[in-house]
Write a protein that binds this DNA or RNA. Structure first.
Length: 512
RNA sequence: GCUGCUAUAGUGUAGUCCGGCCAAUCAUUUCGGCCUUUCACGCCGAAGACUGGGGUUCGAAUCCCCAUAGCAGCACCA
């Protein structure tokens, strides 16, 4: 073995390639062909025999890029180590539940291609939470607190116990039953986990586990005693057998709080990893802000092109696989990062470029007759790197549409792509195009720009919707046949054909 | 204020645990060039970083201390 290694090391790269060609020609292609680099996530400890992980969104709206990070990272590890991926809908706060979001979350997860094996709703599990809440109280790990909120806060900051902390288990159980029986109104009682009043971090001191809420009503269940996140999450993670949890670092304190609950019950603690905060330039990720923007009419809907929701990305033609690899690229680092659209676009371009058919889109079109030009039909490849895909045809009858912007550059000659060359002159009536031959070499020699164009007699009016606003133009009628697909408008960029209305095509700009 | 986490190029990331092989990886980005009937793709090349200051050591991106900066938590939200 060592001898072989030494032998190989002694060879020059050329020699190695020769030897490989002789030994295993089929492998040559592997090293030659460009390979989409797939970054490997760091190994997870205690994962060798499989993992159970979960994605636990709050159904307050559709999923956005922030959710995608947690969803994809957990999914990637489940796929890598094998095991189970649980979708847990965390709907324990009726104030933050949007009934429509249940469906939206499921749709977004389907789009992301997550390998979910099991779905649980926390609102189905309240009896379980009550059962363990009672259990925890019996163990002395929790007490019912009837203090004024503000008063408790002050005591906590002063590291002092509130009067309720000294109640006996029996007294606590009695109060607990009264809570469940509906004898307290909102804010009058809560259940707290007994932790450590001397804990240096005030966030750890006797945090709440249950609260009372009478309004709004929960869309799925009837309840007035609601578990708080730290309690329901700890109970569920244990009951569902979750072995590894990957979540944002805003949960670091929660992880420590949940540890108290694990310890009271004597449960083994999962492996946690907390990734850093991810800022995203240009879009708001706050569900409540998005909702407000939609309500006020600033945004057209949850898939408004300016939002960071997954459905907005989908509408622009971002592929789920691109989101996935972008998130894996970012990884689980605990540094705060800023999400880069450029990087996402690069991932998407790699996926979309080989498959997107090419079409002409002429922004701000100017109709111009071409003098002395012979009538003919142009054929352009649907994809330059894959002639087998066929061509589209563009009839030239004497007049063309070209982008106004090109004329502003005052070129002497222009090559209409896949057609012929034209000379550009200015007269009293404006620009004049004159046929200047078919030879591509002439255009090359004259450094003529090769531009997209459309026949003035047959085109489809089109609007390209960009984050900066709509761009009116025209496109090939054939582009109207690929509704829902991502195409490349040559020299403009990639776009998704959103819809084709009787007299107009609407496309959403994706990226260059 | 208290508690905790983090700090590598414009952006993301590897290396940091176990100091030397790091004159620091890969991707993106930008700029050149080639290819090309797209300003796409592909290919070649270049640019660009260890937050600062002390200390330990023969030797520090890596260990220690201080400073600075960013972020998070201190909710009857998740």
């Amino acid at each position: 073995m060592n001898e072989v290694l030494r032998e190989v090391a002694a060879l020059s790269p050329e020699e190695r390639e020769e030897r490989l060609a002789a030994l295993a020609p089929e492998l040559i292609e592997d090293i030659t062909k460009p390979r989409v680099h797939v970054k490997e996530l760091p190994a997870l400890e205690k994962a060798e025999s499989g993992v159970v992980m979960r994605f636990a969104p709050n159904p307050s709206g559709p999923l956005h890029l922030g959710h995608a990070r947690a969803a994809v990272l957990n999914d990637a590890y489940v796929q890598r180590y094998g095991g189970k991926y649980i979708l847990r809908i965390e709907d324990t706060d009726p104030k933050r539940v949007d009934p429509d979001a249940y469906a939206m979350v499921r749709e977004d997860i389907a789009w992301l291609n997550l390998s979910i094996h099991e779905v649980v709703y926390q609102s189905d599990r309240f009896d379980l939470y009550y059962q363990y809440g009672r259990d925890l109280t019996e163990r002395g790990g929790a007490y019912v607190c009837t203090c004024e909120n503000e008063q408790f806060r002050e005591l906590k900051m002063a590291r002092k116990a509130c009067p309720c902390r000294g109640l006996t288990v029996e007294e606590n159980l009695a109060l607990w039953e009264r809570m469940l029986a509906g004898e307290f109104y909102e804010g009058e009682a809560s259940v707290r986990v007994r932790t450590d009043l001397e804990h240096p971090d005030p966030a750890m001191r006797d945090f709440p586990a249950f609260r009372i809420l009478h309004a709004p009503l929960h869309p799925r269940i009837e309840a007035h005693v609601y578990p708080l996140m730290n309690f329901s999450v700890a109970v569920d993670d244990h009951l569902l057998g979750v072995t590894h949890v990957i979540r944002g670092k805003d949960h670091i304190a929660n992880t420590r709080r949940q540890r108290y609950i694990y310890d009271y019950f004597g449960w083994p603690v999962p492996v946690y990893r907390h990734y850093g905060r991810m800022g995203i330039e240009g879009v708001i990720l706050s569900t409540s802000q998005m909702r407000e923007g939609i309500r006020s009419g600033a945004y057209q809907g949850w898939d408004d092109i300016r939002l960071g929701t997954l459905r907005a990305l989908a509408r622009r033609g971002i592929e789920p696989a691109a989101v996935r690899s972008a998130m894996i690229d970012i990884g689980t680092g605990d540094t705060d990062i800023s999400f880069s659209w450029d990087n996402l676009y690069a991932h998407n371009r790699a996926i979309v470029d080989p498959v997107a058919d090419r079409y002409f889109f002429v922004p701000d079109p100017v109709p111009l007759k071409v003098r002395d030009a012979p009538v003919q039909t142009a054929r352009a490849l649907l994809h330059p790197n894959d002639p087998g895909r066929g061509t589209r045809t563009l009839p030239f009858l004497g007049e063309v549409l070209i982008p106004r912007e090109e004329l502003g550059r005052a070129p002497e000659m222009i090559r209409l792509k896949d057609l012929f060359n034209v000379r550009v002159t200015e007269s009293d009536e404006g620009y004049v195009l004159t046929y200047a031959g078919e030879d591509l070499a002439d255009a090359r020699a004259g450094k003529a720009p090769i531009i997209q164009w459309l026949p003035a007699e047959s085109y489809l009016p089109a609007v390209l919707v960009t984050p900066e606003g709509p761009v009116a133009g025209a496109c090939e009628p054939a582009a109207g046949t690929v509704q829902g697909k991502v195409v490349q408008f040559e020299r403009v960029g990639f776009a998704r054909i959103d819809r084709v209305e009787p007299q107009e095509l609407i496309a959403y700009f994706c990226h260059r």
